[in-house]
Design a protein around this nucleic acid. Structure first.
Lengths: 237, 237
DNA sequence: CACTCTCTGTGCGTTCGCGCACAGAGAGTG
DNA sequence: CACTCTCTGTGCGCGAACGCACAGAGAGTG
């Protein structure tokens, strides 16, 4: 319990941590620390958003699903952002699902509280909209990437982005999961992973992946990584 | 000159038209009516945004360019929206270019004025963020569409969206232009256009396209059109 | 250890769209 | 009318990725 208090005192989430203390104190009574487990769905397509989530660790993917049931990731939210941005954009029903890809913890906040505070706190607005900009950039670049780049390039880019978001070179993800994010076949991911492993860029086994040669992976990936990365640097500066 | 006054009195742009009169009057002295010509670039990649644009008519495409020089459209702005949303999201250099695809007029406004008013007017915030939500939806759905759907489906979707944005069933666009938007070959567009024409869904010749059978086109297109459309209906309701 | 379940590896025919190249058809100009 | 320029039509070889199917390899369980 004292542990929980500690986290609430000192949030890892970048938005919450960057708020002026007085602003943060207004939110704090409404914040609820939750565990996010791999596969959890925080927001369903078509539903209204009752809560938003500020990750302290782990990673959330924003996923669209086609009529045929194929999934495609359109954005990633880590501890620099918030899941549920649609709520401050007018509260239309979500068109994307928020799925926990890498476990961690998050601060849960009722949407109504967020909206109230969003009106009053310029700091919160600035931080939230800034993280939204990074998210929009990701989504737009993904649209280009999905159109133009090969599975191997996209995989490389994706691993790098995930690594940055979770702040680690090693994480738990099966090829099947990755295939859903890239919107491609599982066996296509296997082949691409094999190529990256042959080049000694990554290592993996049964659901665990490790980046061995970060620079090599950057060279293999498309320029989309650099674009996204640059936007995040701007955000955090 | 009196014509200009008329337009400024009664903007066609949905955001400006929906503002409370008192809010609008504060913006009005800074608004500048401009003509948008096909091919004009309103915002360059990497540049800071000095002005934002509220279209009264016509259409603006938000376009990304790959390292190899291929263009891909990630969003469309018509008279329901504004070009230059990045300015209210923190002002990072644009990653997309705003290109006029269909000529018309727009209200030009200095970014500094917009930012000032954005802080003061809740109405403006609500309207701007709402239109941003529609734009983000478009972008996200485009990311999925680019990954999963055929040229013919994407072309159909695109024609329908354009038609909705400009409020007409007929517009000027060469196949080459369309190819750039869809991020595909010009000859691929020719084939797809041929199929749609064979099915009596569209008619076209030398840069002019007409939708003949709207419902048929909807049936041919992917579900992405419906998703985008739904979001716009929500926005305008 | 035997069994099961999940995850990864591999192969094969097919389809889509690419890159490229060239032909022909409107539309405007001198 | 001859000429030019832009826009559209078409064909062909090629490669990436798809759908599908099955084999094998870790890891955990009774």
């Amino acid at each position: 319990m004292s542990h929980f208090q500690d986290v609430l005192d000192d949030p890892q989430n970048h938005i919450l941590a960057s708020l002026p203390r007085s602003d943060y104190e207004r939110l704090r009574p409404h914040l609820h620390l939750i565990d996010m487990h791999s596969g959890d769905s925080l927001h369903e397509i078509g539903a209204l958003l009752e809560h938003v989530y500020f990750p302290n660790s782990g990673m959330i993917s924003l996923v669209l699903t086609s009529n045929e049931g194929t999934n495609v990731e359109v954005g990633i939210v880590g501890r620099e952002g918030m899941a549920g941005t649609a709520s401050v954009l007018g509260g239309a029903p979500a068109i994307s699902q928020s799925i926990v890809q890498i476990e961690g913890t998050a601060m849960q906040l009722p949407t109504s509280v967020l909206l109230e505070e969003f009106e009053h706190s310029k700091s919160l607005r600035r931080l939230l909209l800034g993280s939204l900009q990074a998210l929009v950039t990701q989504t737009a670049q993904t649209a280009l990437c999905n159109r133009l780049h090969s599975v191997e390039e996209r995989l490389s880019r994706w691993l790098l982005v995930v690594s940055d978001r979770v702040g680690s070179d090693e994480f738990d993800l099966t090829q099947e999961f990755i295939a859903h994010m890239l919107g491609t076949r599982r066996s296509g991911v296997t082949v691409a992973c094999g190529q990256l492993r042959s080049a000694d860029l990554i290592e993996y086994s049964r659901g665990r992946i490790q980046i061995m040669d970060r620079q090599g992976l950057i060279d293999t990936s498309c320029e989309c990584y650099a674009v996204i990365q640059k936007q995040f640097e701007y955000l955090l500066s």
